[in-house]
Amino acid sequence: MQRRTVLKGAALGSLAALGAGYWALPTGPAPAALSLEGAQQVLAELVDKKLVSLKGWSPTEVFNHCAQSIEYSISGYPELKPAWFRGSVGPLAFSVFAARGAMRHPLDEAIPGAAPLNQPGSQAQALQRLQQAFADFAAYQGELQPHFAYGALSHADYAQAHVLHLYNHLSLIRPA
């Protein structure tokens, strides 16, 4: 009986936190359309620009991190959250982000089990890697791997997740 009460309380607490989180998400305009093409346009505009990060990771690390996420959606994430999470809290969080058209997550939190963010080491190379990852994802026709937190996503949902993820990280990057 106590276990059921604890589980119900945890579920209700999660729903309340997600509901509050929905309203706390940014409401300003996205840097471009919420599409793969919009993200690719934003990235093209960053080529040959000196960029700085307002806090946390450098632009190079951000580009490598976002590229990793896209690459892992095709090849498989190194570590997954537990199945119960990927079947409940994760998809619920993604649905909130998708409905709001904005994502907010810790901007210095690495993908579990991911390689360090220092390769490639230059901003230009990391940006090129990210552009290539978006191009590869757009052209990919095969089965996508489960997201480490959201679980199974369709190509369209993954595209939206990747774009929202990028735009969230770009909120801390400015021209030098």
Rank of each mutant, 00 (worst) to 15 (best):
D108K: 12
G151P: 00
A17S: 11
Q131V: 11
H162I: 01
S122H: 08
Q40M: 14
W23D: 14
I111P: 02
P120I: 05
K81A: 15
V62N: 07
L7M: 11
P82K: 12
K55I: 04
P82Y: 09
R4Q: 11
G21N: 06
A102R: 13
P82S: 09
K49Y: 10
S14C: 12
A138W: 00
S95A: 13
S53G: 10
W23F: 15
F148Q: 10
G76I: 04
G121S: 15
T5V: 15
L127D: 00
A176T: 03
I111C: 04
L12W: 11
A139F: 02
A67Q: 04
A32D: 08
G113T: 10
Q41Y: 10
A83H: 11
L43R: 01
Q2I: 15
L34V: 14
S88N: 10
G38N: 08
V42G: 06
Q68P: 07
A161P: 08
G87M: 05
L164K: 03
R174D: 08
G101P: 05
A30K: 05
A149R: 12
P78Y: 00
Y77K: 05
L51P: 02
A67R: 05
G76A: 07
A102K: 06
A102P: 00
L51Q: 05
L36R: 04
F85A: 14
Y140G: 10
Q40S: 13
G56N: 08
E109I: 12
V62A: 07
A110M: 14
Y77N: 08
L46Q: 14
G13Q: 09
G19L: 11
G9E: 04
L144Q: 05
K49F: 05
D157T: 02
A16T: 13
G56W: 02
P106G: 09
A110R: 13
Q41A: 15
A114E: 13
D108A: 13
G142F: 11
G56F: 09
H147I: 08
L172A: 14
A124H: 11
I70W: 02
S122Q: 12
P112D: 01
G76V: 06
H169Y: 10
L25C: 06
I111N: 05
N64V: 15
Q141Y: 06
E143N: 13
V47A: 15
A126H: 07
P78W: 03
P116V: 08
A126Q: 03
G142W: 01
G76S: 09
